[in-house]
Design a protein around this nucleic acid. Structure first.
Lengths: 400, 400
DNA sequence: TGGCTTTGTGCCGACGCTAAACAAAATACG
DNA sequence: CGTATTTTGTTTAGCGTCGGCACAAAGCCA
């Protein structure tokens, strides 16, 4: 049971998340000697995961010998990331650092058979691999539903015509095997909920960088999803069902919800609720988010639109305040419709949350819009990178 | 920067929590060789932290050479644990394994000056140390209010006549210094909320053993507190204010709460609410829990009492269901009045939570009464033990 | 009594890290 | 303009921890 250099994983993670631009900060961040940091960097370079730029980079003018620059290898290996969403599916190749190297256009048709969808998206990814000739080290999948642990079944995929309990992880792994995509380990964890994975991506590469406890809430076309990153690790609960925030009550006399209660966040703060509140005729379900976003951006001066936005911000704020009292995060990031809402009026939402949360003093919790395109896709890639970040030497196992 | 044997800490924790009764299971639990496990056990024994009983213990009859028995050293060092509660304060000496070695009776008077209370409780602990002659390695304190990080200030200590923001950690450390109690490190973290610390104790030594994500909810005399242990570590939020569950709404048209809302868990599921619902005259505040408990135990057949209990179980269940949807714990432990409620009718509460939580299938979450006497006290001791569990060699630093 | 199985221990080597000295590349200062 | 200072990178030696292995010990089973 030979283990690799134990500082190797943490070092790669530091470079991966952009927190170690030079060997010098790698030394301090890891808490090791310069000798060790140098050896670790050399080994990561030899593995083809990072690059060292020896030319004296235009550093910030401090005295002393300038550092060499560390960065992820732009031409290094990639992982395959796949995402299923209400409008379609998409495959991409993602390198270290969360950079999307290649992506397919979003395919707009979702077959009702999960196995067929997954076979198609994996085949699209395999085509990208063939075209680019990149080495692939793993694969990750984001789906718009809760994913039950430990079996990886999609529960209540409301936005898809899939049966509840569809074994998406198993189907995904089978599709990968059929397409001959390697993957360096057989570990679990290659499939997750899209909001969860988006949160993970934002924490590592986006607006959540540096946050200790990060709460994310997002709304796509229908319903509201949540996710939580605690101390750098995704908290998905003991059976993968945490942060089902859609059924927080935010308006006791509100709209009936399919869960049997009334006034749940799910039905009070999603795009449909916004359009109805603004007195607009909702279009087809798969364009609700687009429709609501356009309305917010282009007609925010309209009093009816403005009033509807204020109403949704109040409802959302009530839900977020409850979550703040329970979770005490140090940052909140919003996606989908909620991103558009916070961008339309950042101060109102912050004030509502500070008002309603018990310890709103000291200005309350910072609330930011998410900052990554395709954060679920990048998050799915993080899932695939994780075994390599834990121990970079695993990439030697199946190497040519 | 010489570090100790890195498996030393995990090994001590395994013995401390009763998960390593023999060197053999220590070997498997640590994932090391027998040689290493033996060396580690020998070193812990040499440090006086554990004992090895070489006599062939009456093992479970499997074949092969019988294991020697590992256990914490009953006569080894202790930590000082202190607890402030609404009825008074108490000091105790707690050994490894969470065993209370000696304790003072609960002193029933709480001076309004925090510094004086802490000086008195620390002096009581110092007297215990003098009487028993035990070596003391650290100290921990549990208080009945939120403790803000990173400064350790008591926020809104409603049950005490203390000012909000009282710097309890600093006062506690000063009292310890005045009394000449050593403590092996100057690390932070020696003061915490009583429900949080109770949860920690239950997780390590009580009804929460083996749970991955543990949720605890408890009600003393007034209000409701919560705590969460995730992957073995207490989650107290980014500023120590997580799990302020008292203001979850469980009855929208209910009793007004001091937070400005109505029907909060704090005012709908505490002993006062129970007594009022049962039509009884509430006594003095510091005996509300006792009064409610007696009523539940002795007059549960009375229809009015029964109806009040059912009502509170419904309200509590609603709050717990919301928490389950957000946190997805794999076990729930209840303390104080809620312990009495779940003991009175375990099935009703389980059913309410399963009904109201989204994924109640598969029987829902197990809900258990807490199982330790003085779990906050034991939890305070855990806080003090933590640096030693992280690296047992620290006890050599100030050794005679 | 002689296998068989499981546990405990002694010895050696591999490996990951620290420590310390040295070399390199820039700025600061006379 | 040359030298001191500061910071970074590299080399070498050495140590400590742990794995691997062989062997001994202590119980069952036949």
């Amino acid at each position: 049971m030979e283990r690799g250099r134990s500082a190797l994983g943490p070092a790669l993670e530091l470079v991966h998340t952009g927190r170690a631009p030079t060997r010098a900060v790698l030394t301090t961040e890891l808490g090791v000697t310069r000798a060790t940091a140098g050896a670790v960097a050399a080994e990561l370079e030899a593995l083809g995961l990072i690059t060292v730029d020896s030319r004296p980079h235009a550093s910030a003018g401090s005295q002393g010998r300038p550092s060499h620059r560390l960065s992820v290898n732009e031409n290094g290996p990639v992982v395959l990331a796949a995402q299923i969403h209400a409008d379609g599916y998409r495959a991409a190749l993602v390198g270290l650092g969360g950079r999307i190297v290649a992506t397919t256009p979003s395919c707009g048709i979702i077959p009702a058979d999960p196995a067929q969808v997954l076979a198609e998206v994996v085949e699209a990814g395999a085509a990208l691999l063939r075209d680019t000739g990149r080495r692939c080290l793993g694969a990750g999948l984001a789906v718009p539903s809760a994913v039950a642990e430990p079996d990886g079944e999609a529960l209540n995929p409301l936005h898809l015509a899939w049966p509840s309990g569809a074994p998406v992880r198993e189907l995904f792994l089978r599709a990968l095997a059929d397409a001959g995509i390697p993957g360096v380990t057989e570990k679990i964890g290659f499939t997750g909920n899209d909001v969860n994975l988006g949160a993970l991506a934002e924490h590592r590469h986006g607006a959540g960088r540096g946050a200790r406890h990060l709460l994310c809430v997002a709304s796509g076309h229908r319903g509201v999803g949540g996710a939580l990153v605690l101390d750098g690790r995704l908290h998905s609960g003991s059976s993968g069902l945490a942060l089902e925030v859609g059924h927080l009550t935010v308006h006791p006399e509100g709209t009936p919800c399919h869960c049997g209660s009334r006034g749940c966040l799910d039905v009070e703060a999603d795009p449909l609720a916004f359009l109805v509140a603004a007195g607009r005729e909702p279009g087809p379900e798969v364009s609700l988010l687009h429709q609501a976003g356009e309305l917010l951006r282009n007609e925010y001066t309209d009093p009816g639109v403005r009033a509807a936005a204020d109403l949704l911000i109040d409802r959302l704020g009530l839900g977020l305040a409850g979550l703040v009292n329970i979770l005490n995060p140090d940052r909140i990031i919003l996606g989908g419709l909620h991103r558009a809402l916070v961008e339309a009026d950042p101060e109102r939402l912050r004030a509502v949350v500070a008002d309603r949360s018990l310890w709103g003093r000291s200005g309350g919790v910072p609330i930011l819009p998410c900052s990554l395109d395709h954060n679920s896709l990048v998050g799915a890639a993080e899932l695939a990178w994780q075994p390599i970040l834990d121990d970079p030497l695993v990439i030697l196992d199946g190497a040519a």
